[in-house]
Design a protein around this nucleic acid. Sequence first.
DNA 1: TTGAAAGCGCTAACAC
DNA 2: GTGTTAGCGCTTTCAA
Lengths: 336, 336
Amino acid sequence: MATLSDVAARAGVSVSAVSRVLSNAPETRVSEETRDRIRRAARDLGYRPNSAGRALRSARSNVVALIVPDLMNALFVELVRGVEDAAIDQDYLVLMGRTEDIEPGGERAHKLLGEGRVDALLLQPGDKPLPLESLGGFANSRPVIRLNSVGEDEPGSATMPDEVGARVATRHLIDLGHERIAFANGISESYTAERRARGFRAAMGAAGITVDEALVTAYGYTPSDGERAAAQLLAATPRPTAIFVANVNAAVGLLAYARKAGVQVPRDLAVVALHDSWTAANTWPPLTTVTMPSYELGRRAFDEVHRRILGEEPSNIRVDDPPPRLIVRESTVPLR
Amino acid sequence: MATLSDVAARAGVSVSAVSRVLSNAPETRVSEETRDRIRRAARDLGYRPNSAGRALRSARSNVVALIVPDLMNALFVELVRGVEDAAIDQDYLVLMGRTEDIEPGGERAHKLLGEGRVDALLLQPGDKPLPLESLGGFANSRPVIRLNSVGEDEPGSATMPDEVGARVATRHLIDLGHERIAFANGISESYTAERRARGFRAAMGAAGITVDEALVTAYGYTPSDGERAAAQLLAATPRPTAIFVANVNAAVGLLAYARKAGVQVPRDLAVVALHDSWTAANTWPPLTTVTMPSYELGRRAFDEVHRRILGEEPSNIRVDDPPPRLIVRESTVPLR
DNA sequence: TTGAAAGCGCTAACAC
DNA sequence: GTGTTAGCGCTTTCAA
């Protein structure tokens, strides 16, 4: 691999001149002619900066870590893409990891966060809150932003319009004539679950419908959580005619359970879920969902940590554009 | 962050002594007593090696890249886990990326592969072959291993027992009494598709059943490829009574199409798919699948690149333990 | 406008 | 058994 001094030799200039030109130092006067010679030499040699040299010198790696609960989750595809797109614009690379990689005190956590490998952390730990202290001091020296997993006022938060999304979904069921509407939410420790509950209750209240607390569950966001919710909700009497599921993965499990229990969706039961993913289009029946601005959350969150890496003041992110949007498929029909 | 010389100062020894002790240099004589002092000082200071310094000095980053087609794909969960588990054992970190990140000549590809950031590449580009030349010379200087995506004899290949898996799946349908068996395969450029086809044909041949070429498709491994396959296969007359789908994601799409077309699985059509994933348990009906040793592939592939990083001779990996195993769910029943 | 040189944290060859 | 030192590739201050 060609180094700076290889380029310098070939261009007949000093390494510092090459460095200034190739790293686009903002305030630097280099004649157009040397500039050209340097650029040409670099191109001829296929020069690429050595990341270790640069990182060592500048105490910055130009890498951020993005941690999500699991990578198999179609929900995070858009988020990841948003972060990556914003990162590459600033010449940054994204190191992806799973929540289990940063289990407090674990060897992976140290390797990932403790060796100067990443300049900042974008964290979406799942529905169980993960305190900053468990990051082994990382949060004291580097920016950490928590993606839709803490309260909107907590420092370093980036949040999505969960409440609006929940309202849109619930409103859809109400518009279809449903009144006996169940709500399969995430666990109550989770901030997203809290916000989604607010949206659900707001929509119900606005329509003058009293929420039957027996029709509200709080098991979580996985398919098996959805099954448990279904088991409980479908046993209620009278049975709900519609369910709003706070997460599309849970909805997949819920649908599977309903099927087994002989409950026909959408004829006997309308189902709408928050978040969209490819799985939603491939369930039977295809799921009506509400999309959330995950891509935007990713972009904005990266931009925020980048600002902070540059030493600017932290500010909290609230993404509400584009707004949650209903995608009607076949799991919801008007109440008979 | 504490550095080596901080530790040295605190322990009252030289940096080289500290380096020798903390990096476990194999052949080094340091008295037990200094060793202890150094370890204690390091612990007190919370010392962690700086990755940039180490990488610059040793021309090695202790990071490997793992590229898969997309991270939303539940298929790769076990593979990723296998690679990560093997990596951490050797003090390595895994940088995950998607095939689109290394689009030839793209900026991300250069940042990822061209700046000395990774010591090796584990590549599973999807079903379209990706020539090594498009890696911008990376393959000339660093180990690259291709995960179940090239022929078994190609240098740097790591392959799964696709043929056996396909045989197990097909055999299952035959055992249930089916004879008019369709095969929804991946695209024909793909080596996995070729191997799966071999397994399918072997099982059919062994049972003395002639393959009806009208019942063989080659669209690919995504849900929409599965839909296309279903559209063609369900239009055949007489209709097949069973389908072996070469990929579980395609099977999800195929199932959705069958549903829409009013074909009842498993009563009218038995479906078995290769690979298992959480989605398979949540389709309707739940899919009968054949698991593949993805976790093992990940582990073995990492171990192989690690050997090569250490300068040992390349060898090809064939994983066949544990062998493919049938998981009977509800999408297959005996022929009426 | 350009160059010389120091030094980021680490390892390893060499000296004692 | 332990210490000294050079140098990996880069950026940046300072001098010319």
